[in-house]
Every structure is written in C-alpha cells, then in structure tokens.
C-alpha cells in the first residue's frame, strides 16, 4: 500500500517561508484536490513533497519511506508527476512521448520491453489517443496534447499520481475528459493529488479538498464539509453561492 504523507513541510525561498508547516496524506483510492489562490504555495508543496525541490524542514514519506532517501528512479516508480508547465522540445511522435513514462523501468522510445509496451498500449487506450499514436506532437490540439501528457503519466504504472493544473487552458468538455481519467485511475486503487483552480470542477470530482492559503493548510475534508461561501470569501476573496457540491461565483467578496 503506497501513500504519500507530508509532515510539517517548510520551504523557504529568497528569505521568506513560502510553505509553512504543511501536512497532508494521499491514500490509495482517493482523489485529493489541492485548492488555493495563486501564490499560496501549492506547486512548491507538490515539488517539495516529491523531493524535486529541497525542503528546509519536515519530512515526506512515500509508502512509509523517506523520500529524500529514495533515488530519482525509485521515486519515479512510486509516483508519477505531471508538472504545470509542459514544454515539448521536439516534435516527437505521440507513442514516443507516452513511452517516456516508462523511463524509470529502463525503457526509452524505441526500446521497450514487453511489459513497457503493454503499459504504453494500456495508457494510449485509457486516454483514447490510440488513433493519434503516429502523429507528431506539434500537430495536436490542446485537448489532445493534455491527454498525451496524462497517458505519459499513467504509463508509468505508479500507484500514486501528482498533477499540477492538468486541465489548465482546456475547454469544459476536455476538462471533464481529463478529470474522468483521474477518477478511473483512482477507482482502480490509485491515489491522486491534483492542483486545480476551477473550484466547481474540484467539488465535482474530488473525494477530499485541501485548502491552502499563504503557505498553510487552512482546511481539509470532503467537499460537503469544507466548501462554504464563507471559505471562498476568506481564501479567494469572492462572493459565491454554494449548494452541496455545486458552486456559483457571483463576484468580488
């Protein structure tokens, strides 16, 4: 059983504490959404939690093991990471990009073991991009490209997934498609930690919401428990109408 556990994480940048004592747990079978305004420290929390960014204090455990003691490859086999910026240096083929997800298993595009090929194939099917497999990445639409990146992350076959704004700049239909991919992943026993800016989308798909403000977790729990008009006014400074899991933004608070 692999869970991601952050304990009292502190990240300091340029003399100020950007993440101030964050603790959170992502368990198998749950989709956890990290919410908070720009600059709340969400991305830094993810990066430090994965051990990609150095933390000044606190511990992060992956499946009970200290992340800082894991090699980059060991970590990559436990958790797949989809960063916020997804630049592509070369007009690579879709199936080659997805194959990069198998890097931690010693694979490379064009050099896949049977298990690697099977994982790549399954990820292509799951993300409904089999038809695009021979296309060059620079010929894809934004929605198609988002699914290619998801397929790359799913192909790793890691029990955990950390994604930073995976639906940014997508239209509503493609947002649903990508979030459906995460739901399917979770329903099969995976654990996912996803940063979102769309509160309505978060409330619809998340099992648990973690609210961050100024580098701290200010609330955590199911959407029913933690999604309130007062919280939205406090954290985001917006006026909203909330009914159960549905939200309507009305304006400035």
């Amino acid at each position: 059983m692999t869970e991601l556990r952050l304990c009292d994480l502190v990240v300091r940048r340029d003399g100020t504490d950007r993440v101030r004592g964050v603790s959170l747990v992502v368990s198998p079978g749950e989709l956890v959404v990290l919410l908070g305004p720009n600059g709340a420290g969400k991305t830094l929390t993810l990066r430090a939690g994965l051990g990609i960014e150095a933390a000044q204090a606190g511990t992060t455990l992956l499946g009970g093991k200290d992340t800082s003691r894991l090699s980059a490859l060991q970590r990559a086999r436990r958790v797949a990471y989809l960063p916020q910026s997804r630049p592509l240096a070369w007009p690579s083929r879709v199936e080659d990009l997805v194959a990069l997800g198998r890097f931690a298993y010693g694979a490379a595009p064009g050099r896949l073991s049977e298990a690697d090929s099977a994982a790549v194939e399954a990820a292509l099917v799951a993300c409904q991009i089999e038809a695009l497999r021979h296309r060059r990445a620079d010929t894809l639409s934004g929605g198609e490209l988002a699914r290619v990146h998801c397929a790359r992350a799913f192909a790793a076959g890691a029990p955990l997934m950390v994604a930073d704004e995976p639906v940014a700049a997508l239209d509503p239909r493609h947002q649903f498609r990508v979030m459906d991919l995460f739901r399917t992943f979770v329903s099969k026993g995976g654990g996912a930690l996803v940063v979102l800016h769309d509160i309505a989308l978060a409330a619809r798909f998340a099992d648990r919401l973690i609210w961050m403000q100024a580098g701290q977790v200010v609330a955590a729990g199911s959407p029913e428990e933690t999604l309130t008009a007062a919280r939205l006014a406090d954290i985001y400074g917006v006026r909203a109408r909330v009914e159960g899991r549905s939200v309507e933004m009305l304006g400035f608070a």
Partner: peptide, 9 residues
C-alpha cells in the same frame, strides 16, 4: 530523450 518533456518533468 526524457528531457524532451522539459527539466521538471
């Protein structure tokens, strides 16, 4: 090859 996706990824 992996760097095709950028340094962070």
């Amino acid at each position: 090859s992996a760097l095709t996706l950028g340094e962070e990824a």
